[in-house]
Design a protein around this nucleic acid. Structure first.
Lengths: 205, 205
DNA sequence: TTTTACCTATGACATCTGTCACTGTTTTTG
DNA sequence: CAAAAACAGTGACAGATGTCATAGGTAAAA
């Protein structure tokens, strides 16, 4: 039997999925968590063969869990991300942080069970729908913003003007203008509005 | 026993939820549909006490189903919307289209069962989290944009510059500037970026 | 019919925005 | 250590943005 920790914030989805998996005779969900914090607590106490991890959660999200797990690399469990298409912008980050697979909640039950077995066996899983998505993304390679730029971008996406941002971040307006200019270049957009739109749709903020 | 049609596109969620509800001794999910079209087909063949309806679906979404059901008003079944917080902008529309209740997927199982019973009994259900949301909306009374303004706002939220919008809508740039100015005043914001953010969060676009 | 609201347009104006070139300081990294 | 990034700053500039006053045309409502 494959022992499995299920991390998902929506109670109905979590209970339902746990039930379904437990009906199979190969997988047993013997741990559940509503958010990243709970998940890490459970993982301290005992080991699981695999962690089914949702991305969007309160308290600590999927990426947070992955980051935390990386720090104790030796005994990191296999992680299979199971989430919605809306959250798949972070696919690359998640895999970079050590996730072994990434499937959508729209997956069929049998496929999911196969994916879990594959991951436990040491494989990697990516749904066809996602590989297409990846291809599209890789044409426009990963944008890397510096910490400061990300800070400014967050201000932008709050609708702040350069002057306000300068005041908020204790910089001159000119400096903020430079940062904004660099952000626009990196995001390949022409003005702050487009930057905000791109940031939102890419989950950068 | 309350007979129930469950309409939800994500297979795992649907099967899981159906299982959970069937475990109770008051509710039986004896119909399932993956989208609005399938739901309407099922409803032609037979009656259900209640329809559990997801909002965001392929083919035909929740609002579409409600609209279709309204047209044969006499034998419209009770509808309980069960969806995510992201889709709750359409709450008012859904209720106006005859939905008897609106709950989030984050609801607890027992609460959901209670909600279903309440709806079948002729009541209406709104989760506390949603009533708060409604209040917020009503404090900032409905902004009324003219058709043209809405058109311009949509362009804004695509990240277009005034010149582009002017070109796209066959107007002078000055005219567009005037429209933008009026939009900003009506939305009570200071620049186009804030306008776009507000438009998005209020579902105006 | 008169009024009202909407769409269109122009010109002038102040301000904001984004770019560029150039100069530093500090921190990270090879 | 030396090179490379990241960060902060200035000044000058072009162009975009938003405001205001003003005004003509059209369509719907009173």
């Amino acid at each position: 039997m494959i022992s499995c920790l299920l991390v998902e914030d929506q109670t109905l989805v979590r209970l339902g999925l746990a039930n379904l998996l437990n009906l199979s005779d190969e997988i047993v969900v013997d741990g559940q968590a509503q958010n990243g914090v709970e998940a890490l607590q459970q993982l301290e106490h005992r080991d699981f063969d695999v962690v089914l991890l949702d991305m969007r959660m309160p308290e600590l999200d999927g990426l947070g869990v992955l980051t935390a797990l990386q720090k104790r690399a030796c005994l990191a469990p296999k992680v299979l991300i199971i989430t919605t298409f809306e959250d798949c912008d972070v696919l690359v980050e998640a895999m970079a942080l050590g996730a072994k697979g990434y499937v959508l909640k729209s997956i069929e039950l049998e496929e999911l069970i196969d994916a879990i077995k594959l991951v436990v066996a040491g494989g990697k899983v990516l749904q066809p729908a996602l590989t297409d998505y990846l291809l599209q993304k890789q044409i426009a390679p990963q944008v890397i913003l510096t910490a400061k730029e990300l800070q400014v971008l967050k201000c932008l996406s709050l609708g702040m003007a350069n002057k306000s941002i300068a005041h908020a971040l204790n910089n001159s307006e000119g400096t903020i203008r430079n940062h904004v200019s660099n952000i626009l270049a990196k995001l390949e957009v022409k003005d702050r509005t487009q930057a905000v739109l791109k940031a939102i749709s890419n989950g950068l903020v």
